[in-house]
Design a protein around this nucleic acid. Sequence first.
DNA 1: TTTCCTATATGGTGATCACCATAGTATGTC
DNA 2: GACATACTATGGTGATCACCATATAGGAAA
Lengths: 193, 193
Amino acid sequence: MARRTDARASAISTAERLFRIQGYTATGLIQVLKESGAPKGSFYFHFPRGKAQLAEEAIDCYVAKRMAVLRHISSETAGDAPKFVRQIFRTFADEMVAADFQYGCLMQNLANELPALDADLTKRVARGFLDSTEIIADHFRGCGFTSERASSAAAALVAALEGARTIARLERSPAIFEALADVSVRGWASLER
Amino acid sequence: MARRTDARASAISTAERLFRIQGYTATGLIQVLKESGAPKGSFYFHFPRGKAQLAEEAIDCYVAKRMAVLRHISSETAGDAPKFVRQIFRTFADEMVAADFQYGCLMQNLANELPALDADLTKRVARGFLDSTEIIADHFRGCGFTSERASSAAAALVAALEGARTIARLERSPAIFEALADVSVRGWASLER
DNA sequence: TTTCCTATATGGTGATCACCATAGTATGTC
DNA sequence: GACATACTATGGTGATCACCATATAGGAAA
């Protein structure tokens, strides 16, 4: 039987948004339901396992969107590592500016509340990072990097992106993305003098 | 009159620890008091402004310790930027290994729960990042970097450190620090082939 | 039309949250 | 001994937490 309302989907997208702004523990189900317009009575009909399940579906949604963005950038800059790196930083910076620096990364926010997460959710977060990293590593391999170096460069880029989000949010400025792009592409040596 | 007990200090250090592991919202005062051994009855005697004040004192303590570590590394590697960068990554990695990857960065955890923080606490977090960055920028200036480039390189390094902590915690591995040290010092160019 | 399944409303559960009022104890100074 | 200060115990406040039992409304399939 087909679904008759969008209560479920809107609850997920609202949860994704609130988890990114406030974090997992700080976001109550009542707030999610109120802001999404979804009815309170049917929450445990749609999400029998409760808040944990809601978070699982939210992160699946978030990771899928993030990977789509990365894949798109990768295909646009095939074979050109510096351009790829710059384009990633610019895209993330633009997203944050557009959202007035209100949103953190959902994976990072969940990772910072690990004890509140069950094993399943923790695995999904870790998987999200691994999958993102792999897309980036693939691109580097396509630029002629050795496999090992492509992997470590990709991991470094992912970490830098996460840190940049935290800083940008606090400073309400995309400057950190520019700084990271420069350092990443040119290395410290070129910064001297 | 002199203080007669260490209830206050132990509450602060316990709060710092729990905030780093669980985050701000997820950590209840009852847990802080129980784990610190501090009596429940005197909490609002020591911290009249409640949980927010406890967090303020915890972050002051955390930032002071972090800056001391950075200053020490800086003085040990004066004039040598690559060595400085590598030493920072190694020190942070060693700390995480020693603590079995249980601890996040207090500033980052608080930054990811911004809506739960009052203005005073938010300012303290931002100030902590600025002060840390400034120590690093000073070192780069001492290596002959231009002032502007020293600042942006320092900001990039701080962001990378934050992101690395998140990843390392999730992967329970210090590998990301190694990867970042390589990329930071050598740049992407040297990773090709 | 009867029977399901989807979906929602209502009204709770006990637990925990940060916070506080009141009273009392311990330890210092004078 | 008098007295002030430093500290703690007790027992709450109302609010919010995630979660759930029960009843029922609405549309599709039989």
